[in-house]
């Protein structure tokens, strides 16, 4: 083991990495146990196009929604206390990047306009603001860890990074 070539500085937020394989066809076929690598026979989407009902929601939709909500919370906190911008902007951006990556994994885009509005700033001073964000990140960490534990292997790495990132946000907000 040689340490001379550092691995994983982890600074990139887009493009590299996770599988872009669409899961849509698999889910439409009801193959919810999709164990990976089995999308082959169904890759022609037109087989199911037409009057089919919309596909069932992906189990990761709520996690992507949570990422968007967390991003909005941080942006609302910055709006309420602009002095926190340097500290919270990278965290808000990380949540937005998580939402994008989870949607890439799902194979469906995020609902449009979903990230705007919603989060209302917490009343109270900066300490209360940060405490509320810490609590939200802590809850988010738990839900991401649960999603990681329950996910098929090909989704586990991204979800692990999301859970770990939320844990680092708790630390950064302390």
């Amino acid at each position: 083991m040689v340490l001379t070539c550092p691995v994983a500085t982890g600074r990139r937020t887009a493009n590299s990495g996770e599988s872009g394989r669409t899961r849509r066809t698999v889910l439409r076929a009801g193959a919810l146990l999709a164990a990976g690598g089995s999308t082959g026979p169904l890759t022609g989407c037109d087989l199911f196009d037409g009057d089919e009902p919309p596909p069932p929601p992906d189990p990761l939709e709520p996690l992507a929604g949570e990422s968007r909500e967390l991003a909005a919370r941080h942006r609302a906190a910055i709006a309420a206390d602009p002095g926190l911008a340097d500290r919270l902007t990278p965290i808000a951006e990380a949540h937005a990047a998580h939402a994008d990556e989870i949607h890439r994994l799902i194979g469906r885009p995020a609902p449009s306009g979903a990230a705007t509005g919603g989060a209302t700033p917490t009343p109270g001073g900066r300490a209360a603001l940060l405490a509320a964000l810490r609590e939200a990140e802590q809850r988010g960490r738990q839900s991401a860890a649960k999603a990681c534990a329950e996910a098929p292997g090909e989704r586990a790495a991204l979800l692990g990074s999301v859970a770990a990132a939320r844990a680092t946000h708790v630390e950064a907000l302390t």
């Binding site: 982890g10 990139r12 590299s16 990495g17 990278p90 990074s161 680092t168």
Partner: peptide, 24 residues
Amino acid sequence: VWATRWRRAARVTPVTVAFPGRPG
């Protein structure tokens, strides 16, 4: 989390990365 603590001790900003552990 330790990487974040060490970045803070070193005054590196931001103290977090978006995808911990992901090859860069």
